[in-house]
Computed example of a mutant assay.
Amino acid sequence: MRDYVPKIIGEESFEHYIGPYRGYDPTTDPSTSNVFATAAFRFGHGTISPILQRLNESFQMHEHFPHLRISSTFFSPWRIVKEGGIEPTLRGTIGTPASTASANMLLTEEVTERLIVVNNSQFTDLASLNLQRGRDHGLPGYNDWRSFCGLERIKTLEGLKEVVRDYRVAEKILQLYKNPDNIDVWLGGLVEDTLPGSRTGPLNACLIGKQMKAFRDGDRFWWEADGMFSQQQKDELLNGSLSRIICDNSNIREVHTDSFRFGKFPNDYLSCDHMPSINLEAWREEKSRDLVQCGTPRQIKNGDFILSSTSGKLVALYSCYHGFKLKGAAAIICEENRWSNQPPQCTGT
């Protein structure tokens, strides 16, 4: 929500459709809308690069593992295992500029001519799948969703040219659809000229923005909601980032401070040693008074316990690992500064 969405719909649309967090709203339905899942968020298919870049530690073309066409990577996890691990691919993802979208080349031919689908021996066309999915789901057309978002309906070729900004593409669309009301919402949203500082046009910015706001405001467990985390914990969570996740889960030691933005290596990169991280000390729990008085319950062989509270008393609940049987009381209670019984045993069955 902080690092990705504003770059997709633009800062202005983010402020208009999402805005600052005001707290949990029980009247907001956080369900995923049909048009978001089926059309709007599939704008990302237009951002797929035909080439999977694989870079070395200097963020240059890898000496041993050259770039790949996307079609040669479908259902090929062995490439990660056998060809240098995940690091060359991760570096290629964060160290390569995103493909420039244009109305006359919405999707790369790697996914429209050579897409592989499981249990299908023939190549598939991702654009055709998206269009048919929208129709199967009964989505209203492009113009109806523009009205939903408070945008002007497209009535003429000139109106379509105005939002697409590519006259030949607009003419081709109307030649195929005959009437602006017939245009599929996935296609209409994708061909719109992008807003400043975004990767989407006005319609998809609206549909994505409204959905993201619903996800956030209708979630009673949202991290910023009252009672979820202490202020100290919230402050630590703000240190989290995709760049930090890459540092913690790969052998990459230098990353851009914001992996959703392209930067040139090494000037725009930072050592993982200096990348902000979440200090888990903010979640350290103080021992309860009962636990201090009774002490930590004794561990048992082939089993474990959890601490619980029953009728205001501290209880240790024991259980055995799979294949072992509990012998003795499963629960012991902290009473009068001592545990009520000896821990049970776990015997083989």
Rank of each mutant, 00 (worst) to 15 (best):
I80A: 08
I80Y: 05
V81Q: 10
K82C: 06
K82N: 14
E83M: 03
E83V: 00
G84K: 05
G84I: 05
G84Q: 05
I86E: 12
P88F: 08
P88T: 13
P88S: 09
T89I: 14
T96H: 09
T96L: 08
P97K: 13
S99L: 14
S99N: 11
S99K: 15
T100M: 12
A101S: 11
A101E: 06
S102W: 07
S102K: 14
M105C: 13
L106K: 10
L107V: 10
L107D: 02
L107M: 15
T108D: 11
E109C: 01
E110L: 13
V111D: 13
V111G: 12
T112G: 12
E113R: 14
R114C: 09
R114M: 15
L115P: 10
V117N: 07
V117K: 14
V117S: 11
V118I: 15
N119R: 15
N119H: 15
N119W: 12
N120M: 13
S121P: 06
Q122W: 10
F123R: 09
T124F: 10
T124P: 00
T124H: 07
T124E: 12
D125M: 06
D125V: 03
A127F: 13
A127N: 08
S128T: 09
L129N: 07
N130M: 09
L131W: 10
Q132R: 13
Q132S: 12
Q132E: 14
R133G: 04
R133W: 15
R133M: 09
G134S: 07
G134V: 11
G134H: 04
R135P: 01
H137K: 15
G138D: 01
P140H: 04
G141C: 09
D144V: 07
D144N: 03
D144Q: 11
W145H: 07
R146I: 03
R146C: 00
F148N: 06
F148G: 00
G150V: 03
L151M: 11
R153Q: 08
I154N: 02
K155N: 09
T156W: 00
L157K: 00
E158C: 01
G159F: 03
K161C: 02
E162V: 01
V164L: 05
R165C: 01
R165M: 07
D166T: 06
Y167I: 01
Y167H: 08
R168M: 11
R168W: 05
A170Q: 02
E171H: 03
K172Y: 07
I173P: 02
L174A: 08
Q175V: 03
Q175A: 13
